[in-house]
Amino acid sequence: RGFLEKAAVKKMAKAIMADPNKADEVYKKWADKGYTLTQMSNFLKSKTAGKYDRVYNGYVIHLD
């Protein structure tokens, strides 16, 4: 289950990176699912340092 969630989160993160207008909708879905910042950090780990920082930081702001 965790692997599928991670894959889904990364897919949506890539969608945000391609079209930032989708961010609020995606952040709301993640918040509704109760994803914590720790979970998001783990889901968005990448071999490329900083690749998903913008998405993660946007989610931090959304939760605030």
Rank of each mutant, 00 (worst) to 15 (best):
S41M: 10
R54S: 15
Y27M: 02
A13S: 03
K33G: 05
T48R: 11
K51S: 05
S46I: 06
F43N: 02
K10Y: 04
W30L: 02
Y52E: 01
K29T: 12
L4Q: 13
A31I: 04
D53Q: 06
L63N: 02
K14S: 09
R1I: 13
G58Y: 03
A13N: 01
E5I: 10
D53K: 04
V55A: 06
I16N: 01
K11A: 12
T36H: 03
K28N: 09
N42D: 15
K14E: 14
T48K: 11
I61R: 15
K22D: 04
V60K: 14
E5P: 06
E5M: 07
F3S: 14
N21T: 14
K45G: 08
W30A: 01
W30G: 00
W30P: 00
A8W: 15
S46M: 04
R54M: 15
S46F: 05
A13H: 01
K45A: 10
G34R: 05
G2D: 15
T38G: 11
N21G: 10
K29D: 14
A18S: 12
I16C: 05
W30V: 00
G50W: 03
V55T: 02
L44A: 00
K6I: 13
T36R: 02
K33P: 01
V60M: 12
M17L: 14
R1Y: 06
M12W: 06
K22W: 05
D53S: 06
A15S: 09
A31C: 15
K6D: 07
G58Q: 04
K33A: 14
A18T: 09
A15P: 01
Q39P: 01
K10D: 03
A18Y: 08
I16D: 00
E5R: 06
D64C: 15
S46G: 08
H62E: 02
D24E: 11
Y35L: 06
D19F: 06
I16T: 01
F43P: 02
M40N: 00
Q39I: 08
R54I: 10
N21L: 11
M12R: 04
Y52H: 02
M40E: 00
K14P: 01
M17F: 05
V26W: 04
E5H: 07
N21D: 11
V9K: 01
K6C: 14
L4V: 13
Y59E: 01
Y52G: 01
F3E: 11
A23N: 02
A23H: 06
Y59C: 02
L63G: 03
G34N: 07
K22N: 07
I61Q: 14
M40D: 00
Y59A: 00
Y56N: 02
Y59R: 00
K45N: 10
E5N: 07
V60R: 11
Y52L: 03
